[in-house]
Write a protein that binds this DNA or RNA. Structure first.
Length: 421
RNA sequence: GGAGAGGUGGGUGAGUGGCUUAAACCAACGGUUUGCUAAACCGUCGUACGGGGUCAACCUGUACCGAGAGUUCAAAUCUCUCCCUCUCCGCCA
């Protein structure tokens, strides 16, 4: 969430930012409630001050065995007034809080303005499309023929969107996970194995709750949610903590399966490995000093890009426009890999800066070296990378005319084989 | 799942209704002393939200002792509900 003080002092900036994201502007309502809240706070505090002094006085009178009925009857009235003020204050505070949770983060000035994905800007691309005499097959045909991914039996066991990886397919998954984690370690990320279920407080901290509840699988009996991304448990590691400045930047990597309900999606978007209810991902999370979050964002993106280069896959870097960014981000890059079999780009990584938006919700601060007040950190994360579409791209990019698949050299030590089929 | 114990500031930990603006110690930070280190001594040492200000490092109010509600003129302290942690037993990879 945004800082209420920031909204109070820069209402126009906030209105403008919200407008750019195409969200409803509730700034005036927030300012009205904030004004009322401060008014009530002033009156209530004055009365409480009165209560504290007089109560002390009563204590003294009683100790000296003197009559205290006068002040006591005054305090009975004061008590009623305080109660009704506190009730209204609680009411106003709750409304204000609910409203504050609906205000999105405001985009960074470097983000292009726009409404739809068509307004996103391609800022870089790398690699070439595979050259072949034959028309490349989409990955679902290849994977079924090679018997390395079993979509039908996945449906039987759990439902659509839960594929079954078999033999070389399973091994390829495991190889990619290890490869991604090893590369992250070299780049200074500490590996984490977090819980795969989280409580409501954690999901609220990163912004999945209250609005985006429907994207997660819920276990109501135990009040837990299956993680939609490792971002949720990993960013919450330092919730309600004050870090030392010399601990920054904190860099974590984590492999987890991700569970997403994906209600309402259909058609070519969900074919094969394009969109799943359960998929594997290695996520990178950074907690950084507010002064350097944009250079950290770029280096995070480079960390993810390096993997695509090593795998030799053609990709492009998209800078998301204001309207296509999420609720919580100030700036976001997508890495999209080329699917030769489908003739389309597939998003395999999303790299974002949240500035202090999540940190404020989670209360993650740091104390500067020289002392002083704790400040909110900036949080960032990026996928490095999401597995299924990488598998899709690998199968399609490295397929041979005979319907086999050549495995890139960097993966051999992880797969133990260089060819599927 | 059953039984018991307990949740107090960065940490340890005192505190059963008013003398607590939460003791003391440790850690941290600043200083004095010192050939260096150490020690000793002195000082500072919470967070949030308000108000005032020559708006910074200052003054002031309120709240916060797991969470919420209640009793009372007055609650860390009494009552109720809930949450969490630990120990033992049961079950179990």
């Amino acid at each position: 969430m945004l800082d209420l003080k920031f909204i109070r002092e820069h209402p126009d900036l906030v209105r403008e930012g919200i407008g750019k994201k195409g969200e409803t502007d509730r700034v005036d309502e927030i300012l009205r409630l904030d004004g009322r809240r401060r008014e009530l706070l002033g009156s209530a505090d004055a009365l409480k001050n009165r209560r504290n002094t007089v109560s002390e006085e009563i204590g003294r009178l009683k100790k000296e065995k003197k009559d205290a009925t006068g002040p006591i009857s005054e305090m009975e009235k004061v008590k009623q007034s305080i109660k009704s003020l506190d009730e209204e204050l609680g009411d106003v505070g709750e409304k204000l809080n609910v409203l504050l949770f609906t205000v999105p983060n405001i985009p960074h000035p470097s983000v292009p303005e726009g409404r739809t994905p068509a307004d996103n800007v391609e800022i870089a691309s790398w690699g070439e499309e595979a050259v072949s005499d034959i028309e490349p097959k989409p990955h679902w045909d290849l994977a079924s023929k090679l018997d390395i991914i079993d979509f039908e039996r996945g449906v039987k066991i759990a439902g659509a969107g839960f594929p079954l990886y078999k033999g070389a397919g399973a091994r390829l998954q495991r190889a990619l996970i290890n490869f991604f984690l090893d590369e992250a370690a070299v780049r200074g990320y500490r590996e984490i194995q977090p819980p795969l279920m989280v409580n409501a407080v954690s999901a609220t901290g990163t912004g999945q709750l209250p609005d985006k509840e429907d994207l997660m699988y819920a276990i109501p009996k135990d009040e837990l949610f299956m993680v939609p991304t490792a971002e949720v448990p990993v960013t919450n590691i330092h919730r309600d903590e004050v870090l030392a400045e010399e601990d920054l930047p904190v860099k974590y990597s984590a492999y987890t399966p991700c569970f997403r309900r994906e209600a309402g999606s259909y058609g070519k978007d969900v074919r094969g490995l394009n969109r799943l209810h359960q998929f594997d991902k290695v996520e990178l999370v950074k907690i950084v000093h507010p002064g350097v979050s944009y250079s950290e964002l770029d280096s995070l993106r480079e960390d993810a890009e390096a993997l695509l280069k090593k795998l030799g896959l053609r990709y492009r870097v998209m800078l998301m426009c204001t309207g296509d960014m999420g609720f919580t981000q100030t700036k976001k890059y997508d890495l999209e890999v080329w699917s030769g079999g489908q003739k389309r780009w597939l998003e395999v990584s999303s790299v974002s800066n949240f500035e202090s938006f999540q940190a404020r919700r989670m209360n993650i601060r740091f104390k500067a070296r020289g002392g002083g007040k704790p400040e909110f950190v900036h949080t960032l994360n990026g996928s490095a990378l999401a597995l299924p579409r990488i598998v899709a791209a690998l199968l399609e990019h490295y397929q041979t005319p005979e319907g086999k698949v050549v495995i890139p050299k960097v993966l051999h030590r992880y797969t133990g084989f260089g060819l599927i089929g």
